[in-house]
Design a binder for these strands. Structure first.
Lengths: 334, 334
DNA sequence: CTGTTAGCGCTTTCAA
DNA sequence: TTGAAAGCGCTAACAG
């Protein structure tokens, strides 16, 4: 039924070892022999069995990717960066959605490890003690992607979320705004939630603006929650003149909410966010945002993982990618 | 270093076979023995090696997924449907982007087959003879996802793209429009391109409207190409009063182009599309669209694949999922 | 209910 | 430059 390396060996009149060498591009094979083997392979339609190879060589050329939700544009972009680089280095990726749920994350990490992945890319919610524990029992390298661990022991690739938020709010402040609302993610989320909120507070503080908790609403990163948060702000007796959103999608919700209310962006209210997904230029007015290089985060973390898997020494196991402000049309003077 | 089933057997004072039974939930094990084994597993921190298991059992509980581009929202949604169901049936997925490029597709199909996936989900451009050939040499089931093959030999899950387009254009016609532009995908793309274009033409014909090739522009599914196409229409001496776009994203580009031009949607020009991605409700006016159930296409195709992998007999190997019109605000009277 | 024993298809010394 | 042979860690008859 299935053609094995042994069949090829017999057909070509050589040993299994020789066929193996040919298949693996080992130079120690006489060209003539190589040719014979290739012909036999062709004739028999031989297809190497990667599972058997994996068992014998203890390498699967497969890496595991734990992702919150592939249907989220932001993560999908990271995934694409990962896959492109993986592909370049001849790795395949096993993708697992874990929805930032700790239990699910731990479960898939173990499954992935059972499948003998050569490395693991983890993109999730908080990295708890339990996560670290699971990582420790893996004897393959792990890279955190778009997250970091508190104690900074695990290699990671991310942006500085706090600074990104700080910079975004600074843009608003520079335009003269002093009443600045924030649509935040859950504070349980260390990167997209908590850190960005901290950046917001620090920017306010630096500018000598007092923090008003009435001006902070927690959303769930989705469009609708941006709409809801904005609705709340608009009904405030003294509503903010600018809003900082933790994500593009909520920002777009906010913009539409403002427009539906009969006000204009940025004339009446300015809006800025962090992300700069493709959607940012797909709204009117186009969204000014701090760009988070999602594709690069994926690509760089995969590249880092390849180095780790090859046991190359890496100087910077904690890489912080730069973010930048992309000025479009949603921010104006106070 | 690594603890194997043999180590567990020794530790528990039983044979490998018994450990294997315990690990695989085989009922033929005395509860007491089972307990002993579990304790040994716990004590040693044993983690079954899925690669060895795969080699011995000839099953990897892994399926391959060939996808055009995971960073495209539409496909990401399908992927999520696939993964959710895969997960439910204890399969993992190896994800490969192939950008609808034939060579790349063939290449990843072979890699996936080498990795001994238990089944394959193919989402791509055209299914050529070469594809069929590659599928034939696989001795695992294949399901086409959001595509179909011409001769209809391969199981598949998709919507009726021609009918979806027909229905969309009908909506416009019913509102009295007779001058209807189309922003199409490339006609090389059988499903999203050609079929939708055919549906457009048939709707026109059915309504007795003559086809005018000036009113058809080919885009690349992206926002910008929607803008460009619409710009072209707006400059026409006699511009259309309604536009049918093959995808949401191009439709949104068209809407913004119309608005930037100083006209209103739907008062001046109506816009409808096929997709109904989350973005459809993230524009003003919200987009009326024919909904393509992407998540379901993924879920159903994965479900179908599980049946095929279990060698269950399936009555309908060609499933056509229903589409529906989601009326929002972008379509009005002529 | 449990153990013995062949493999699964390949890589990798080691020797020639 | 090539071959022989010993595993890799597990499953799956088969026997008891």
């Amino acid at each position: 039924m299935t053609v094995t390396i042994y069949d090829v060996a017999r057909e070509a009149g050589v040993s299994m070892a020789t066929v193996s060498r040919v298949v693996n591009n080992n130079p120690n094979v006489k060209p003539q022999t190589r040719k014979k083997v290739f012909e036999a392979i062709e004739r028999l339609g031989y297809r190497p069995n990667a599972v058997a190879r994996g068992l014998a060589s203890k390498k699967t050329t497969t890496v595991g990717v734990v992702i919150p939700d592939i249907s989220n544009a932001i993560f999908a972009e990271v995934a694409r960066g990962i896959e492109d680089i993986a592909n370049m280095y001849h790795y395949n990726i096993i993708l697992c959605n874990a929805d930032k749920k700790k239990d699910k994350e731990i479960r898939v990490i173990n499954t992935l490890l059972e499948k003998q992945v050569d490395g693991l890319l983890f993109m999730g919610g908080t990295v708890t003690e339990e996560h670290s524990q699971a990582f420790k029992t893996a004897n393959v390298p792990i890279v955190l992607c778009a997250t970091t661990d508190e104690n900074g022991e695990i290699p990671s690739v991310d942006i500085d979320h706090e600074a990104a938020a700080f910079d975004a709010v600074q843009v608003l402040i520079k335009q003269g705004h002093t009443s600045i609302g924030m649509i935040s993610g859950t504070l349980q989320d260390p990167a997209n939630g908590y850190a960005r909120f901290q950046g917001y507070k620090r920017a306010l503080q630096t500018a000598g603006i007092s923090y008003d908790e009435e001006l902070v609403r927690i959303g769930n990163y989705r469009y609708e929650s941006g709409v809801d948060a904005m609705k709340y702000f608009l009904e405030l007796p003294k509503r903010p003149t600018a809003v900082f959103s933790a994500t593009d999608e909520m920002a777009i919700g906010a913009i539409h909410c403002i427009q539906d209310f009969g006000l204009k962006v940025p004339e009446d209210i300015s809006v800025i966010s962090v992300d700069n997904s493709r959607m940012a230029s797909m709204v009117r007015p186009q969204l000014t945002a701090v760009a988070q290089p999602m594709y690069d985060i994926g690509a760089v973390s995969m590249r880092l993982l390849t180095k780790l898997m090859k046991k190359e020494t890496v100087e910077h196991a904690k890489v912080v990618l730069p973010h930048e402000i992309v000025t479009r049309q949603s921010v104006g003077d106070k």
